[in-house]
Structures are given as structure tokens and as C-alpha cells.
Design a protein around this nucleic acid. Structure first.
Lengths: 198, 198
DNA sequence: CTGATAGCCTATCAGTGATAGGTTGACCTG
DNA sequence: CAGGTCAACCTATCACTGATAGGCTATCAG
């Protein structure tokens, strides 16, 4: 019955943990999440590959933690946009643009949260937890900004969200598609996404 | 100059090739593309794992071939919807609904074509070829159905496409999100996607 | 029969995420 | 200071992944 609490470290104040996250973020941004191995991360940090598992239970947990932090950032952006001055339409538009900007500026986090199919099939539904939860937070803010209190707030919010997500995810996943001018596309798309919400 | 054409089989009329594709499609649907290994596919077909490489250059090529076929299917659906009877709005709506249905019915093909980041970074841009090409074909049909001939057809078409894609990809990637009634959501979303296209 | 070749096999590779179990060193308590 | 605890790290190793090398066999054209 010796100590089997080997991997139970997870001290949230660990500096090493932060260093791992920092290097992982850098490598993810450089080479894409899927192309980075645990050995690369460990090597960048200067430790052995198994040592990562003293700080994270699985390799996915690293990506997930980065994703959660990024989405906290998004939630702040949205809050700020929605709370600022201007009429409802103006604030909504600002929020929508913030959403798109966030996705394009944090493509890896965005992928982890909304574009990657986890092992959803057989595992518990809540398994994809952190990533989804962080995204849900952002969604709720959007819904709050939309709510016409007519009972269809969720339906409209989900449609608007899907509309914005569509452009972000396509621009991320297919950067070499013959897009029209991106700035004009984003502007027109956001306008169309929010049309008829009076 | 002895025969180095080991893996250069690729006889497009091979029955084995078809059998491999059929088993791969089944396994992909059951377990998800990412969770299926070449050994599983080979085992299901009844051959050894390396034998797959006599019919396909890489494992991705299998998924890509399935994806191309699925998108040929989508192009047919869209053509049929756009060519049928009814006014422009009615035909467009039918096409949009066909697009969404296709995505939800062929989530794996859809993922391969539009949701997965290939090794885009360092490789040639055209590397992601077949999947993108097949999807492009479908996009062109959509653009053709929209074209108001006012020069902004591409911008509008890309926005509409992104709008539809957004819902499809979110429903695929996040099946456990607390969605409102899906039929109602799809209906409302398509309506919003096509609003103001007169 | 001869030679080419399509299709398959076994053996093997490097690289992947993950686990097992031992070693070190800082810290706190008696 | 002695002894215990424990976080953090190591090496060795696992099962599995996609992919390659090279040899065997059956079929078919000449």
C-alpha cells in the first residue's frame, strides 16, 4: 500500500506547469496542435517526456487548459463589448466582431473548443467538459445580449452563434480557399448575422 | 531501374479497393475517423495492414476518397434542389436544407472536407487537394444559385455558405450542447441565412 | 515454359501517448 | 539533527500508430 499518488501533483501554483503551458502554446501556434508531440513539449521545457504527466493527467489536458484560458479571455472581450456604450444593436455588433476577432487570433484554442471531435462516442457526455464549459460561458453572454425576452432567445442566440462560428471556423480550417476580401466579408457577414434582431 | 513501382497499384477498377473503402466507411461511422487505425481497417477487410498501401498511398487517402465521393453526392443534391421547380427563393431554400441535411447525414465526410486542419503549414497549399476540390464544386453550385449578377455574388455566397456551415459543424462537433429543438433551429437558421437575398 | 506483374505476406522501423518504479532534494516535525 | 513526507524528476518500457522493405505466389500474355 505504498504511495500510489504518483501523478496526483496538479499543484495549481506550480511554476513548471506554467512553463509547460507556455512552451506548449508556442509550439501549438508554430506547428499546429495535432503536429506537436508530448516529447517536443517536454524537450522545449527541458524535462523528460514522462515528467509532463506529473503536471497533467493526459496530453489533451494541456491543450484543454490553454483553451479554457483563451475562452476566459473571450468572455472578458464579450462582456466589455456588451457593457460598453451605445444602443443594443451597436453593442451586439461590437460583440460579434469581438467574437470573430477572438477566433482568428486564437485559432488553436478555438479549434479545441469548437471544432475538434473528442472521444464523445463512448465516453461520458460530460467528458469534453472544460473546453465546452468555457465556450458555454461565452455563449451565455451572447444570449444575454440578444435576449428579446420573447422566449425565443435561445433559438435566435444559437442561430447567431452558429452564423458567426461558421465564418470563423471556415476561415481557420480553409485558409487557402479563394476568399473575397476578408475584412469586407467579416463586415458583411456580421451585418447579416445580426439583421432582423430588432 | 528495377521495379520500384511497389505501391503504384491504384487500379481504379480494383474490387479490393472498393472493399477497403466500404469497411473503412463502416468503421469511420461507428467509431469516428480519428479512432480508426489502418490495422482495424485491414483486419475488417481480411488482409494485412501493409497491404492497404498497395491500394492507397497513405491512410489519409482512404478518408479523402470517401470524402470526395460524399461530396459528389452533395453536388448532386444541390443541383437537384436548385434545378427543380419553384421560384428562386424556394429553390435556394431547398438547396440550403439539402446542404444541412448532407452534413448531418455524412458527418465524417463533412469533417474531412471542412473541419480538419491538414498539414497546411509547411506543405504546398494545394496539398489538401481532393477534399477541398470536391467541396469547392458544391460551393460553386451554391454561388450559382445565389448570383444576383451584381458583382457581390462571391461575397454573399461565402457569407451564406459560412452561415450554413456554422450550424452544421457545430451540431456535428458539439452534439451534447443544450441545443433547442433541432428541426426548429435548422428551419429558423436557414430562413435567417437566406433573408434579404431578393 | 517464361517472364512480368498484381496482390499479398512477414518483419521491421521510428515515433506516439502513457505507465511503472526508483532517485533526489526540499521541507517540516519531533 | 533524525526521520518522514512528498513533489518533481529520471530511465526503462509498454502497446500501438502509420509506413517501408523485401520476398512469395497466382495469374496471364507471349
Amino acid at each position: 500500500m505504498a504511495g500510489k499518488s504518483r501523478n496526483a501533483a496538479r499543484s495549481s501554483h506550480g511554476e513548471r506547469r506554467e512553463e509547460i503551458l507556455a512552451q506548449a502554446l508556442r509550439l501549438f501556434s508554430e506547428h499546429g496542435v495535432q503536429q506537436v508531440s508530448t516529447r517536443q513539449i517536454a524537450s522545449a521545457v527541458g524535462i523528460s517526456q514522462p515528467s509532463l504527466y506529473a503536471h497533467f493527467r493526459t496530453s489533451q489536458e494541456i491543450a484543454q487548459e490553454l483553451c479554457v484560458r483563451a475562452f476566459r479571455h473571450l468572455a472578458e472581450d464579450l462582456s466589455r463589448a456588451l457593457a460598453g456604450e451605445g444602443g443594443r444593436a451597436e453593442r451586439l455588433r461590437r460583440a460579434a466582431l469581438a467574437y470573430v476577432s477572438f477566433g482568428l487570433d486564437n485559432p488553436d484554442a478555438y479549434r479545441v473548443a469548437f471544432m475538434i471531435e473528442k472521444l464523445v462516442d463512448h465516453r461520458a457526455q460530460a467528458e469534453q467538459g472544460p473546453g465546452l464549459a468555457a465556450g458555454l460561458e461565452a455563449y451565455k453572454l451572447l444570449r444575454g445580449g440578444i435576449s428579446g425576452a420573447d422566449g425565443t432567445a435561445d433559438l435566435i442566440a444559437q442561430s447567431v452563434w452558429a452564423t458567426l462560428h461558421g465564418l470563423v471556423s471556415l476561415l481557420i480550417a480553409r485558409p487557402h480557399f479563394p476568399w473575397v476580401d476578408k475584412a469586407a466579408l467579416i463586415d458583411a457577414h456580421v451585418t447579416r448575422a445580426l439583421a432582423g434582431l430588432d
